[in-house]
């Protein structure tokens, strides 16, 4: 009974704290990026100010149905996160996340602007690129620990990274796509200096765009949770190791963002499938032989 209470508490903590922590992470991201570029950077709480300002802006939408779909996006991201943090089933978490990105794609298609149409097509290609890898993460944990259940994975007898180094490398590769960072920020970039203006979210404004921002904070926290999963096992101090790994991966993503330009969709598809095949699939084959 107490484990159920424990899981529920984690779920509620995620719901309430994830946007706060996600926003602070986004603020750190901007300050670190600025310092790397020899600038000063905005205040730490700037993402919160931006979201608050967005909620006060007038909303101009061509097709109001996009609000419904963006709401669906936010809802499914929150649900995936809740499933993850209440130690549910990892496969279910991956599929709910896919549902969230489909909602975003339909939202982008629903407005008739050519920028968001092309952005939605690119978003579809991106989803095709990273889905195999995410599934391989779930399957890899099943092969390594014999279960899809997150609570048993987190209390396993050894850290996931020992059995799944290739899968971990593949995950870090595709995290750039999910974090919307160079070289993979084709469909939607943090900066509007790309040929699609802001890509998928070009036509969103006001509260809708604020919802997208908050959904991204939820998503970032829960993706870092995936990284955390590789570094925890039944030992109590492994929690610190997991958090350290999250910090290192986050900093690495910022570094790669500042060191690369954006690539085209053909290169994205090829390179992601190649990495998934080489790093992920071979790791899984080795695990299957070892069983």
């Amino acid at each position: 009974m107490s484990e159920l209470m424990n899981n529920l508490l984690f779920g509620i903590a995620y719901l309430i704290l994830a946007p706060v922590v996600g926003g602070l992470l986004a603020g750190c991201d901007r300050i670190i990026t600025a310092r790397m570029q020899r600038r000063v950077g905005p205040p730490l709480l700037q993402p919160f100010y931006d979201v608050l300002k967005l909620t006060e802006k007038q909303e101009i939408a061509v097709n109001l149905i996009q609000d419904f779909y963006v709401g669906g996006f936010l809802l499914f991201v929150m649900i995936s996160g809740i499933f993850f943090f209440t130690r549910g089933d990892i496969l279910l978490v991956v599929f709910t996340l896919t549902l969230a990105s489909v909602c975003l794609i339909v939202a982008a298609y629903s407005s008739n602007s050519p920028y968001s149409q092309i952005g939605a097509e690119r978003e579809l290609i991106q989803t095709m690129s990273y889905e195999p890898m995410l599934l391989m993460v779930a399957i890899g944990f099943y092969l390594a620990t014999g279960t899809f259940s997150l609570s048993e994975i987190m209390h396993g007898h050894a850290a996931g990274i020992i059995f799944l180094p290739g899968v971990f490398l593949g995950l870090v590769y595709i995290l750039g796509i999910k974090f919307r960072k160079s070289p993979f920020d084709l469909a939607m970039s943090h900066h509007a200096h790309q040929e699609l203006i802001k890509g998928t979210v070009t036509e969103f404004s006001g509260k809708t765009l604020a919802m997208v921002e908050v959904a991204h904070w939820y998503e970032n926290i829960f993706l870092l949770g995936f990284v955390y999963l590789f570094f925890v096992w039944s030992a109590g101090w492994s929690i610190l190791l997991g958090l350290l790994a999250c910090a290192v991966v986050f900093f690495f993503e910022i570094l790669v963002d500042n060191c690369c330009s954006r690539i085209k969709w053909q290169a994205l598809l090829k390179s992601t499938w190649l990495v998934s095949l080489v790093a992920g699939f071979i790791n899984l084959l080795i695990l299957m032989y070892m069983r």
């Binding site: 310092r35 790397m36 020899r38 600038r39 950077g41 570094l255 790669v256 500042n258 060191c259 690369c260």
Partner: peptide
Amino acid sequence: LSFAGTILGGLFKKP
């Protein structure tokens, strides 16, 4: 990541 040298150096220099 050939730019990483300048980028990481920038972190430790004044803006």
